[in-house]
Amino acid sequence: MSEHSMLPLFPLQTVLVPGAVLGLRVFEPRYLDMVGECGRSGAGFGVCLIAEGGEVGVPAVPAEFGTEALIEDFGTDDEGLLTLQVRGARRFRVARTVVRGNGLVEAEVEWRADDPAGARLRPEHALLGTLLERIFDQVGRPDDPGAGFQDAAWVGWRLLELLPMPEERRVQLLALDDPRARLESLLALIG
């Protein structure tokens, strides 16, 4: 049985995946209010790809799947705008949305199961682990090395974060509950 809860959404033109770090600039009152609420409660908010609409102005329609964002750090930029560093946590499916009076989209979300712990990379996916190591050689290793190059879920999330692909495709892979199915799709993408 899936757990449901209400989660404020920050729809963006990008997809956040579990374990990934994302920098945000916050200036619209609805999102400043949301960040204040999250700070007081210690809760996260949801990041979803925008299915229809824009990041600013009229409330956007979110994609069906997203990732909870937990605030790790905050500050202000040169223009005095609030900056956040968030890290992707749990995945969710949007069951329904409501728009608050201030224009903030809030969703009833169904939390997706966590990836099984310790699922090792299978021999047919070894190429993906090697590819990820080569990418890290080029762009640098993340500050949170996670489970490592033999962990199927971790390799899949890092590749989903780093490989160039349409954001809509990233959402499709985010929706997959099986880390090995995610790896199969990534293999097909680079093949």
Rank of each mutant, 00 (worst) to 15 (best):
G101L: 00
L12P: 12
L70P: 05
A60N: 05
H125V: 11
P11S: 11
D114L: 00
L131S: 09
D115Q: 03
R93F: 02
G80P: 07
V139K: 01
G44P: 12
L81E: 10
V47Y: 13
E108N: 03
A60C: 09
T130E: 15
G101Q: 05
L9V: 14
S41K: 14
R120S: 08
A43T: 15
F10W: 07
L16G: 09
P116N: 01
F45V: 12
C48F: 15
Y31M: 06
G118L: 01
T76A: 04
G44S: 13
D114E: 14
E108R: 07
R30Y: 13
E64M: 06
P116F: 02
F45W: 11
T130N: 14
G54F: 07
F27Y: 11
V35Q: 01
R87N: 04
V139D: 05
V139N: 01
L84V: 02
G75W: 00
V105H: 03
P123R: 04
I71K: 01
Y31W: 07
G46N: 10
G54H: 03
R96A: 05
L121I: 15
I135D: 08
G36S: 14
L128F: 11
E133R: 12
V21D: 05
R25Q: 08
E64N: 07
A43Y: 06
L104W: 11
E28R: 01
H125W: 12
D78S: 06
S41T: 15
